[in-house]
């Protein structure tokens, strides 16, 4: 079996051949080099709008990478430049070591793109349009691969339907089929679950996992932060055309563990007493609120000590509450901090 024909293979068919065939949390180290290497990428539109500013990004082979960012942050522009839909104003992009300009054939033949907008030839039939995509990417006709992709996406029964007769969810499946039928090594999913029902969303994540297990690198943009948490190996946060942070999802989850304890005081304080400085407290609400920020996943939470120290300092509180920051809070804070 050649390298390319294994994209949608069930994970169990490869069992017993090589140890690496089993799903692993971090496959990035298995192949040297980058799946996608971006340096100093800039994009300024004719209107003067700077969509991307000096973007550097390195995506490893076989990882699922989520690009998070508010609307207009530059996510789609970034994907569009890599895929050849938009011309960069500066910088370089290499796909699997191939420059997207000089070696566009090698670069593009490795890429599958599922754009955000549903764009279909309404009069074409499902089977014909998927077959077309394979040919366009320079692959010889293969009814077997077309059938497998259609079956994997529950489209086989609809193969002779015209696209205009399909529901939105089915059209989305067709677009995914078109992106997969030429067996790409890197798959771009631009807002894949926007406007998609729960069932398709679940199937889609199932598919993404299977593709990853076959070594396909997946780069997706999403507004659903929980999905990035659940699916992505690493997350990149982009805002106003700049990459603010690129981090392992587990590391971001560790940050998610940050909690805050707020004490509502009986009497207002003018300042935090020196005996409490070690806790890094913040005084707010006119001196009536003390906030203690801690990390409950580590040993650094010292709540009993804090309470004893408060008692010793003669500070009386009448109420307290704790609050856990979500990834969304972290995301909002990152975006806000980067754009003061």
């Amino acid at each position: 079996m050649d390298d390319g024909t294994a994209v949608l293979r069930d994970t169990d068919t490869g069992a017993g051949t090589v140890a690496e065939a089993a799903p692993q949390p971090d496959r990035a180290s298995q192949r040297p080099g980058s799946a996608l290497h971006i340096t100093g990428l800039n994009k300024r539109y004719d209107s003067g709008f700077r969509a991307l500013e000096d973007v550097d990004l390195d995506i490893r082979h076989g990882e699922i990478f989520a690009l998070l960012g508010p609307n207009g942050a530059g996510k789609t522009t970034l994907i569009s430049i890599v895929c050849g839909l938009v011309t960069a104003s500066g910088g370089t992009v290499a796909v699997d070591g191939h420059d997207i300009e000089r070696e566009f054939r090698a670069a593009r033949s490795r890429i599958g793109l599922v754009p955000q907008e549903l764009a279909t030839d309404a009069f074409a039939k499902v089977h014909a349009t998927v077959t077309y995509s394979r040919g366009l990417f320079g692959k010889p006709p293969s009814p077997a691969i077309v059938e497998r992709v259609l079956r994997d996406l529950s489209l086989w029964d609809k193969r002779d339907e015209r696209l205009m007769n399909l529901s939105g969810g089915m059209k989305r499946r067709v677009m995914i089929a078109k992106a997969l039928v030429h067996e790409p090594r890197i798959l771009f999913l631009d807002e894949p679950t926007a406007g998609v029902d729960v069932e398709l969303r679940r199937e889609m994540w199932e598919l993404v996992r299977r593709l990853r297990d076959d070594g396909v690198t997946i780069i997706l943009t999403t507004h659903y932060i929980e999905e990035a948490e659940e699916m992505a190996d690493r997350v990149g946060v982009i805002s106003q055309g700049r990459i603010i942070v690129v981090e392992h999802t587990t590391e971001l989850m560790r940050q998610l563990g940050r909690k805050q304890l707020t004490l509502h005081l009986q009497h207002a304080l003018e300042a935090v007493p020196p005996s409490l400085h070690a806790f890094g407290l913040e005084l707010s609400g006119g001196g009536r609120e003390l906030t203690y920020t801690y990390d409950d996943t580590s040993d650094r939470a010292h709540i009993p000590e804090l309470l004893r120290a408060l008692d010793a300092a003669g500070i009386v509180f009448r109420d307290l509450h704790t609050q856990q920051s979500s990834l969304e809070d972290i995301f909002v804070r990152l975006v806000r901090d980067s754009n003061p």
Binding site: L85, R108, S109, L113, D121, A122, S133, G138
Partner: peptide, 18 residues
């Protein structure tokens, strides 16, 4: 014009074709 109008031109532009 048709692929430009319905948006499917994205596929042509992203394909390894000159």
């Amino acid at each position: 014009y048709f692929p430009k109008f319905n948006g499917t031109i994205y596929e042509l532009l992203s394909a390894p074709v000159s």
